[in-house]
Write a protein that binds this DNA or RNA. Structure first.
Lengths: 342, 342
DNA sequence: CCTCAAAAGTGATCTAAGTCATTTTTTTTG
DNA sequence: CAAAAAAAATGACTTAGATCACTTTTGAGG
């Protein structure tokens, strides 16, 4: 979509010619002949950049800037003064009030374009949505670069319930589970992680102690990222906020699903579901695939006793839904298994 | 804490005198005599504002700005050029590269302070943490003001699974539950909301369709806030991001707890827990309190059949943990009930 | 205050799944 | 490669809690 530029200028010639130039350059322009309508237009159309004259009847440029600055919705729109006043004092006053740039008339078209684009770019950089994917990558790279790579053997505990969260983790390669432990020692896994997943951020995000445990399933390589680094990026980069907000809410959705199953689904269905979950996370994308997971881990995922899992697997084998080679499980058809859990 | 100002300037006199003035004014200053050390200092100390000369040996001001702009950590630090170059072209070049202001030497102290403070204020406005509590309130007020107040009778459905989320909700007064529906119609409530709670944001946050339903328990007043308004505030105001990130992660923690209970706790314990949950949300703070909730709603909260809930309540009554007046439940001692669920 | 539908409670029955003890299979290791 | 240890499977038994059918209580509305 074209960038929207609002031009607030009382001089008809300048207003029209500026608008024309910007129109030709592919911007969508809105014009106002005085400060008051300018503020209205800004509030209703939320332009990407505002160009504003200082000396105007009704409401001058300083007033416009003040009013727009008060409204959270318009406060962050880049604001560029354009004016004939070349005097230093006026320019300083404009900047002190929070303007983002200052163009003195007469300015040429190139100056105008560059001023608009540089403010636009500057805003993109430190905020606003839109090109998030593009801006997210370097930030994540930076985060990971700051972290320390660690190699862990299978079944190593990464953090435990009640610990003070000091790190965010990124799984370079391997398999990790997060789980809770019931009083009597039984476990319930909530999430499985594989290459490229972040984990351990929930507790950091809500500022309390870890509410779950995490451990490797197989030997894995993880990056430990300092909590302080993470927090800084989380709040200062919208792309990062956006990512983690969506990770958090995705996790809520998954937990909700799992809860419903736990409450009302038979173990048979839950085992089928758990197998598919494991296959999705750790298997290849094919309809049939082989997964390797201990019965205990599977039981923790289902929320049942490991004996029960064994029995179910025996049933599934009987029904030709799976096969077993050693302790590995061969899912013959994800689709058929999917029907079981319905 | 004092604001940190980094001064990058090769001229010893100007550098020292500027630093001195700022020191006296209560700023914490760092100085660099060339661009290279300036970049190092900026990266290591992360100042709140950077003042930078343009013409310098080793690395000029433009180069410094470029390098700092590339690093996500320093990109959003306000950058003010200070220079003797009064020529318009140089000033334009600086601004086009993304500088935030431009002071031409000689400048007086007041100009300097104002320039620093206005950039600092500007940044505060559209980001950075710190005074979050203070800045959160007006934004939330604004959000609520934008919304539409609605009054709903008891048992009214607010949104259902599969709907496109179009609103965020704020419960002015009343009681609301969110719940999921199992294939056969059984329900599982995940959360109860009371006055002052936001709800319905999870699905908005992850950009998918609603994954749960919500309905009033008693007649309630809610504010409907447009999704677009919410999204804008969510990403553009750190205080709002912070709030919702913590709401989301809090919700994850609660769901995690509830899941563990569902998996391994007896119905007896889960009923006790549900009663306490309801008492906490809707009752007064006393050790004994009266709550009014239908057995169906309670069953949905526990994740069991309503008959089972009735039986449990009968048991609790027998054990003098609760009493019943009509259909209301009188919790005689939260503490004793709490022991049950342990 | 009475009527009546909805909500709550109870009784009897049944089964899915937990538990514990034991056997079989797989993996590890000296 | 054999022995030991760990993991998985199976068998026998038990029970929590779901289900269905029915009775009792409650509170809304005339």
């Amino acid at each position: 979509m074209n960038k929207k530029v609002l031009i607030i200028e009382d001089n008809d010639d300048i207003r029209e010619s500026t608008a024309e130039v910007l129109d030709l350059a592919g911007y969508q322009t809105y014009t106002a002949r005085n400060g008051k309508t300018g503020v209205d237009l800004a509030t209703s159309h939320l332009p990407d950049v505002i160009l504003c004259d200082i000396m105007m009847p009704e409401l001058d440029g300083y007033g416009v800037l003040y009013l727009l600055g008060k409204n959270p919705k318009t406060a962050s729109i880049p604001f560029i003064f354009i004016t004939a006043k070349t005097e230093r004092a006026d320019m300083r006053k404009g900047m002190e009030m929070g303007a983002d740039d200052y163009l003195t008339k007469p300015f040429d078209d190139l100056e105008l374009f560059k001023a608009i684009e540089s403010r636009f770019k500057k805003k993109q950089q430190s905020g606003s949505f839109g090109g998030s994917a593009a801006s997210l990558q370097p930030v994540l790279d930076e985060l990971r670069r700051k972290g320390k790579v660690k190699t862990l053997a299978a079944k190593q505990v990464i953090y435990v319930e009640g610990d003070e969260p000091t790190h965010l983790y990124y799984l370079l390669q391997g398999q990790v589970k997060t789980y809770k432990r019931f009083k009597d020692g039984r476990e319930l896994s909530s999430t499985l992680y594989h290459d490229g997943d972040f984990f351990g951020f929930e507790s950091i995000c809500n500022g309390e102690l870890y509410a779950d445990n995490s451990a490797t399933l197989i030997s894995s390589e993880i990056i430990q990222i300092q909590k302080s680094d993470f927090m800084e990026y989380l709040l200062n980069h919208q792309s990062v906020s956006k990512l983690f907000i969506s990770l958090l809410s995705g996790s809520i959705r998954d937990k909700g699903k799992q809860m419903l199953q736990l409450a009302y689904s038979s173990v048979r269905k839950r085992v089928a579901d758990a197998l598919l979950q494991v296959a999705d996370k750790f298997g290849n994308g094919d309809d049939s695939c082989t997964i390797k997971i201990s019965r205990d881990d599977l039981a923790a995922l289902v929320g049942t006793a490991s004996e029960t899992v064994s029995r179910m697997l025996a049933d599934f084998k009987e029904e030709k839904l799976i096969e077993k080679t050693g302790n590995a499980i061969n899912i013959l058809s994800k689709e058929k298994l999917w029907n079981v859990k319905q």
